[in-house]
């Protein structure tokens, strides 16, 4: 399991030769091993950018990100990073099973058939091993994408709005399942979402980012013990926390 240390990170993009836009400014965040952290914020606040920085998809403009004391690219090159996007990014010409075998092939290690079978069971896709992504529903594709992100037993799991394109009911069901799957090995996890309920239900800690340039506005620990039952979403304390964070995101609702 990995611990993340983000110190004073800024990210800006050049618009043209003269001007640039700052997406993130002075971000300080440390995530303990095995912690599940959710990043929420209004669209354009740079929450996905922060995730991309941790995934070594982009480089920081200033500051540093260390994962277990090393830069993110080191973890990536050891193939210890798992990621799922809002777009499932399953290869359309491969079956579910072959899509899950892909991370092993890329890492150049033997395909662990038993682990793939187990993951397919875990995400509830038994019977669809040989189906291709176009034959699956949106929710099933996301299950496959999440199973794929867990294949190599990652030290760090990055989830970039994985349920953002699903309808509300499917999304709620996927949240419950993600918790069950996550509890199995409890990898350190960063989840980017714009759903306050999703963040509170899943995370140990919720980080609220404010917009333009993105800065950390609030960081709260979620007190509920695990495993969290569905009924939790109807509890008064859950609603109180939801209201508090919603107002932080949209002050005009106060």
């Amino acid at each position: 399991m990995a611990a993340i240390e983000i110190s004073n990170v800024s990210k800006s993009y050049a618009l043209n030769r003269k001007s640039s836009v700052t997406a993130l400014q002075g971000i300080d965040l440390s995530v303990a091993q095995g912690q599940f952290v959710a990043l929420i914020g209004p669209s354009g606040c740079g929450k996905s950018t922060l995730l991309h920085l941790v995934a070594a998809l982009e480089a920081v403009s200033a500051g540093s990100i260390l994962i277990d004391g090393e830069p993110p690219a080191a973890l990536r090159d050891q193939h210890r990073l798992g990621i799922a996007f809002q777009d499932h990014a399953l290869l359309p010409w491969l079956s579910v099973e072959s899509n899950l075998a892909l991370p092993y092939k890329i890492a150049g290690v033997a395909v662990d058939k038993a682990r793939i079978k187990h993951l397919i069971e875990l995400v509830g896709l038994v019977g669809f091993e040989h189906a291709r992504p176009s034959q699956l529903s949106g929710g099933m594709r996301q299950r496959a994408a999440i199973a794929r992100s867990l294949c190599l037993d990652p030290a760090l799991l990055l989830l970039d709005e994985p349920f953002g394109a699903l309808d509300a009911v499917t999304r709620m069901r996927m949240n419950i399942e993600l918790q069950r799957i996550w509890l199995e090995r409890r990898p350190t996890t960063l989840l980017v979402t714009h759903s306050v309920e999703e963040a509170i239900f899943l995370a140990d800690r919720v980080i609220v980012l404010g917009g333009r340039p993105g800065t950390i506005v609030e960081s709260i620990d979620v007190p509920f013990p695990r495993p969290r039952p569905v009924e939790l979403m109807r509890s008064e304390e859950f609603h109180r926390l939801t209201d508090y964070l919603t107002v932080l995101l949209e002050p005009s609702l106060r």
Partner: peptide
Amino acid sequence: PPMSRELFHVLAASRSRQLLSLALP
């Protein structure tokens, strides 16, 4: 396919692996 390039990047795929498993298909 959308985001597949990012996926291969995060999985630290070599250029030849990107060609064989992604670009050629």
